[in-house]
Design a protein around this nucleic acid. Structure first.
Length: 313
DNA sequence: CGCTTTTGACCAGCGC
DNA sequence: GCGCTGGTCAAAAGCG
C-alpha cells in the first residue's frame, strides 16, 4: 500500500474561496460573518496541521524503533542461519513482502520514492537483504512514447517484457549493464491510473559508482553541485502528495545537466534525497499561485480575526 | 561483427 | 496436482 493512500496530507485550501476578496462587501454584517467563517476554517486547518505533525512524529518514532530492533535481530540471524533457509525457499513471498515493506517504509520517508526495508532483515541473510533493496521512481513521459525508457544515467540491458494481469501496459525488465557483476534490476511499467506516468522499480544496489560520477572525475572537472530547479513536479491530489521526477529532461542541453547531476549524486543517500524532495516540494508549493493565494487568504483571515478581536476590546 | 532488443518458451511460487 | 502468474532465459532479428 502506498503512503499516499494511507495518509492524505492534501489541504484543500481552495475549498471555499474567500469571496470578499473578489467582490465588494454587501454589508458590514456579511463581512463579519464571512470573517468568522474563515476564522473557523483557519482554526480547523491549524488543528489538521497539528494532527499531521503529531502523526508524522509518531510514525518517525515507530520507524526508529523498528530499525533499532531489526539491527538486533539481524545480528541474531547471522548466528542462526537455520531460520534463513525457510525464508529462502519462499522466495517470491519474501520478495513480495519486501516490496510491501518498502512501501510501508515509504510512508515515513516520503512519496513516490520508496527505499529498502529493514523488516525483512529478520528473515533473510544479509546478502539477500541488500539484494532486496527496492526503490520506486515515477517519471512523467509523453503518453505516445511507448519506449518505456527511464533515463537515469545508468546503462541498462533489456532482458524481457511481459504483460501483467493488473495492467494492460507491458512491463519491461532491465539489468544494469554498466558493470557485469552489478546485481541491480529495473522494472518499468506505465501507470494504470495515469498513462503519462512511468513507474520504474529498482531492485538492489549498484556495486559501482554512477557513470556520471566517473565521467566527472575522469574529466577532472570539479563541478559545483547546486540545488537548482530540477525537472520535478509535485502535486497535491485527493489521494495525497505525489512527486514526479521528470528524468527525461536531463538529456536536454544547457544548465539542467548540472542540476540533474546533483540529483543523481543524491540518489545514493536516501536521507539527502528525502531532504531534497522536501525542499523541492516546498519550492514547488511556493511557486504555485493557487497555493499562494489560498495561503495569503488564510493568513489575512487570521490577521483580520486578530484585528477584529482587538477592535472589540 | 558485436551489442542490444524482441519475443516465445520455460521455470518457480502460489492459491485452489 | 493443476492452472495462473510473474520473472527469466535464450535464440533470432535489428542496428550501428
Amino acid at each position: 500500500m502506498e503512503f499516499t493512500s494511507l495518509l492524505n496530507t492534501s489541504l484543500d485550501l481552495n475549498h471555499k474561496p474567500l469571496r470578499f476578496l473578489d467582490e465588494a462587501p454587501q454589508s458590514r454584517g456579511a463581512l463579519i460573518e464571512e470573517l468568522n467563517r474563515v476564522s473557523a476554517e483557519n482554526k480547523k486547518l491549524t488543528e489538521l496541521l497539528t494532527v499531521m505533525c503529531e502523526n508524522y512524529t509518531e510514525l518517525r518514532n515507530q520507524l526508529m524503533e523498528q530499525t533499532s530492533k531489526n539491527i538486533g535481530i539481524d545480528n541474531n540471524n547471522n548466528n542462526n542461519n537455520n531460520n534463513n533457509n525457510t525464508a529462502a525457499s519462499r522466495k517470491r513471498k519474501a520478495d513480495q513482502s519486501s516490496i510491501n515493506d518498502a512501501n510501508n517504509n515509504n510512508n515515513n520517508i516520503g512519496p513516490s520514492e520508496s527505499s529498502s526495508s529493514d523488516e525483512d532483515s529478520s528473515k533473510k541473510p544479509r546478502e539477500e537483504h541488500i539484494k532486496a533493496k527496492i526503490s520506486r521512481v515515477y517519471v512523467r513521459t509523453e503518453v505516445s512514447d511507448s519506449s518505456l525508457i527511464v533515463k537515469d544515467g545508468y546503462q541498462w540491458r533489456k532482458y524481457g517484457q511481459k504483460v501483467t494481469r493488473d495492467n494492460p501496459c507491458p512491463r519491461a525488465y532491465f539489468k544494469c549493464s554498466f558493470a557485469p557483476s552489478c546485481p541491480v534490476k529495473k522494472k518499468v511499467q506505465r501507470s494504470i491510473e495515469d498513462q503519462s506516468i512511468v513507474v520504474a522499480t529498482y531492485e538492489g544496489e549498484h556495486n559501482h559508482p554512477h557513470p556520471n560520477k566517473i565521467e566527472s572525475t575522469t574529466s577532472g572537472s570539479n563541478r559545483n553541485l547546486t540545488l537548482g530547479t530540477v525537472p520535478c513536479s509535485t502535486s497535491l491530489s485527493s489521494s495525497g502528495p505525489t512527486i514526479t521526477l521528470d528524468l527525461t529532461k536531463q538529456l536536454k542541453p544547457s544548465s539542467t545537466q548540472e542540476e540533474t547531476r546533483s540529483l543523481r549524486g543524491k540518489s545514493d543517500a536516501p536521507e539527502q534525497l528525502q531532504q531534497y524532495f522536501v525542499e523541492q516540494m516546498a519550492s514547488n508549493l511556493t511557486k504555485d499561485p493557487n497555493f499562494k493565494a489560498a495561503l495569503a487568504a488564510a493568513i489575512s483571515g487570521k490577521f483580520l480575526q486578530q484585528n477584529n478581536q482587538t477592535e472589540k476590546w
